Structure formats: C-alpha cells, structure tokens
Simulated scan of single mutants.
Amino acid sequence: MRFVVIVLLVVLFGAVKLPAELALSATHRRLHFRAVEFDPGLREQIGQLGFVAALSGFRALVADVLFVQAHMAWERTEWGRVLFLFRQVTTLQPRALLFWDMAAWHMAWNASAAALRDPAQPRLALRIKAQREYIQLGKDFLERGIRNNPDRPQLYEALARLYRDKDKDHEHAAEFFEKAADLPDAPSYARRFAAYEISYCEGREREAYDRLHTLYSAGEKERLPTLIRRLKDLEIKLDIPLDQRIANPVP
C-alpha cells in the first residue's frame, strides 16, 4: 500500500510539474537560449570555479569576475589566458553579446597584431601563421555567438567587419552586413555597408550599382562621400550613359 501511495505521489508531482517545464522549454526556444549542458567535458572546458557556478546558478556573477580577469590578462598581454578566460565567460553567459564581441576583438585584433610583431619569433612566416590563427579564433567566437544569438544584429555586423578588415573577403562581409540589416534594431548603415562590399565583388558590379543608386535616391542623408565615390567608380566600370550619372562631383 505504501509503495502505491509513493508511486501515485510521483505521478501527481510529474503531472503538476510537466506544464511548467514545457512552458519553460518553449520560452527558451523562443529566446534561442542554449542552456549549459552539464556533460563530463564541461568542467574541463570552463574550470572548477565555472563548473560550480553553472551548478549553483551563479553563472552571471562568476562570468563577470572572469571577464575582469580576462581584461587584466589582456593588459599583461597574456593571450593564452585571455583565450581561456573568454571561453569560460562565453560558455557561462552565451546570451551576453558583449562577451562574444570582446573575445573576438581581443583575438582577431589585439592578439593577432601582437603575434605579427612578436620579437621572440624571428621567422616572419611563423608570425603570420600565428596571426591567422588568432584571427580564426576571433571568427570562431563570433560564429558561436551568432548561433547562441541568431536574433541579434550586433554579432553579424562584427563578423562582417572581421571579414572586411582582416580577411579582405568582400563576399562574406556583404553577406553578414546584409544579415545584420535584416534583423530588428539593426544599425541604419548596415544595408549601405553591404552594398559597399558588394561593389568590390567581381561580377556583382551591376547589383552593387543598383543598390547604391537606390540608397542615393533615398535622399541627402544617404549621399555620403563613400557612397558617391563607389557610385562614380561603378558608373565608369559599367559605362553608364552620361545623362544617367549622378551630378555630385567625386568627393
């Protein structure tokens, strides 16, 4: 009899708990929240302190402490420690855009520049290799950040800038500026920057011209020096008739 009562209580508790769990899961999916998985590799990935935080519900507090430590490691140019700490921080707080953005910036800009100037490495080829590896680490942070925050434009824009400034990859830069522009709260310049990048892509000159001309026709606020210069270049390259060219002089 006692066993039957226990079974009934367990079933009743499960029935009461199930709607709340389903609602919570639906909210997580709607917010694109990727929960921390407590698998055996998590402790190794984020360290003992981070693992305890993940178990105890103090992820945000510990992530902030680790973020400060990462900043201190950056000031000492301890790039390996910066990487280690930002991996912990972003694992603990995957919805915090600042952490992904800062991690990528430190790797792709700061660490990569330091690697290229490393006085301890006399071989240029190895310095360039290290530089490229740090840039790739920055790219990886942004790609994982986007997977955790697919509804936010900031990391798409950051990845577009990385492709543009570090890889000179105009195709991918245009792609991610465009993805940023398609999201709510995107910066007003994202669509224009996508068109700029397309204008440098071989074979897409006509598309770029049409996009830039549409922006130009939208009004004075869009007629910025870079847009006018790119339009002028494309007018020549596409042999646009003189009477169809914009009147503005080259800035």
Rank of each mutant, 00 (worst) to 15 (best):
P119N: 10
D118W: 06
E78N: 13
Y163T: 05
W109F: 12
D118V: 03
E171R: 15
D233E: 12
V16L: 15
P122Q: 14
V36D: 06
P241M: 09
P119T: 13
Y189P: 03
R2Y: 05
Q131N: 11
A70K: 09
T214G: 07
V89Q: 10
K237S: 10
E175H: 07
K221R: 13
D64P: 00
R147G: 02
R59N: 04
R229S: 15
R34E: 14
Y189S: 12
P119I: 12
M72V: 10
R223T: 09
L137C: 03
A54R: 07
S217G: 07
M107T: 10
P150Q: 08
L83C: 00
W79C: 07
H170L: 01
L9C: 15
K232E: 02
G219M: 05
R132I: 01
F84Y: 06
P40L: 06
L24P: 00
Q88P: 06
V52G: 04
F193E: 15
Q48A: 14
E178I: 00
L183P: 10
R211V: 01
A114Y: 08
R161W: 11
L126N: 06
L124D: 09
G145D: 05
E222W: 11
A20N: 05
E75F: 06
N148D: 13
R95P: 01
D210A: 11
W105N: 02
Q45H: 11
Y200C: 05
I246F: 05
A104L: 03
E207L: 15
L126W: 04
F176L: 02
A160T: 13
L159K: 08
V10S: 08
P251A: 11
A218D: 08
K139M: 14
D182E: 11
K179G: 05
R147S: 14
R192Q: 14
A174Y: 05
T77C: 03
A190K: 07
I228V: 15
R132M: 05
Q88T: 06
F141D: 06
R43Q: 15
M1I: 03
L116Y: 15
E44G: 05
E133C: 01
M102K: 13
G57V: 13
V10E: 03
K237C: 00
E75N: 12
G203I: 08
F99W: 12
E171G: 11
